[in-house]
């Protein structure tokens, strides 16, 4: 059987590249810019699949560059950077990699909470720069027993809830609708959740309803003694409001794995010691990246063998 052409949108995993190139004819978009008319003319008809990720999805223009495109397999849970409307119109299938990264993202949420409250990163910098020799390290804040509000009690949100319960934390949540058989307190408005917790964790998916859901009012309701954790998407938060709240002391601190304009981070945050920042590494572990890559491959193979997809989005 002739090898199918697969286009990769970004150098997301060398393991995935290796596995793809052993099964398909692999085109790397960063080596062949799709705007190059020569490249398109030669190859656009031979590309049947696109492998994207959370940051480098597929807009309508990219999708329409490939007339034979049948499937987009995203190496991510979030598919907000893929034009799903265009995919539906063109009957292009879309798959993602749910579940495999749930634990990693939940773990990182707790890591960001501890990093922010217990000032782990500040402490590390304090020791490395020799501060300990001649000064005392300031107090940090207890984590055990705090009230944790989870925005979006999906797989990741629920995994976070299970972890923080082991720290004696009280969990409440806000989501589109109240979940049956869940004992945690439910708030139908995010502002009420924020007003009633000390740690607010954003773990919902990014949709039109949740874009900028953390605005000035929500941040003010959370307050100067509380912290905000974002392991969702940068655009969940009105970033300029987050920055001004931190600068003005209206918010106690923040642990952020995602930003509105990644990889660019607001300059004002770089000097604050009540903020922990990571470079969108929520699921970036050796083990999970392999599991995600394997799932991308199995979805593509299932598609080309006309078998049911393992993890279809549409």
């Amino acid at each position: 059987m002739e090898k199918k052409g697969v286009l990769m949108s970004y150098p997301m995993s060398s393991y995935l590249e290796h596995e793809l190139s052993s099964r398909f004819t692999l085109f790397k978009i960063w080596e062949h810019p799709f705007s190059d008319p020569q490249f398109l003319k030669q190859n656009s008809n031979s590309i049947h699949a696109l492998v994207s990720n959370a940051a480098h999805g597929a807009n309508a223009e990219l999708i329409d560059s490939f007339t034979e495109l049948e499937i987009i397999a995203s190496y991510s849970v979030g598919v907000d950077k893929i034009d799903l409307g265009k995919c539906k119109e063109r009957k292009i299938k879309v798959t993602n990699t749910p579940d495999v990264l749930t634990d990693d993202v939940a773990d990182l949420a707790v890591g960001l909470i501890l990093g922010t409250l217990r000032r782990v990163c500040v402490a590390d910098a304090f020791v490395r720069t020799g501060g300990w020799v001649n000064s005392e390290f300031p107090l940090s804040t207890k984590f055990t027993g705090k009230s944790v509000g989870i925005l979006g009690l999906g797989r990741i949100g629920y995994a976070i809830a299970k972890r923080v319960e082991a720290f004696g934390c009280h969990v409440s949540y806000c989501s589109r609708s109240e979940k049956p058989n869940i004992q945690y307190k439910y708030y139908d408005k995010v502002i009420d959740l924020a007003a009633n917790c000390e740690i607010l964790v954003v773990s919902c998916s990014l949709t039109e309803e949740t874009r900028h859901i953390i605005n000035r009012e929500v941040i003010n309701a959370l307050g100067s003694k509380s912290i905000l954790i974002n392991i969702g998407r940068g655009a969940h938060i009105v970033e300029s409001e987050l920055v001004s709240a931190l600068l003005e002391g209206r918010l106690g601190g923040a642990g952020l794995d995602v930003f509105e304009n990644e990889p660019h981070v607001p300059e004002e945050l770089l000097k604050l010691d009540n903020v922990v920042m990571m470079s969108h590494v929520g699921s970036d572990t050796v083990e999970t990246c392999k599991a995600m890559a394997d799932l991308v491959i199995r979805n593509l193979e299932a598609h080309f063998l006309k078998k049911p997809l393992l993890t279809p989005v549409i």
Binding site: L108, L114, G115, V120, D124
Partner: peptide, 8 residues
């Protein structure tokens, strides 16, 4: 968590 997930 910091050592394994490289938070700092």
């Amino acid at each position: 968590l910091d050592v394994l997930r490289k938070v700092s």
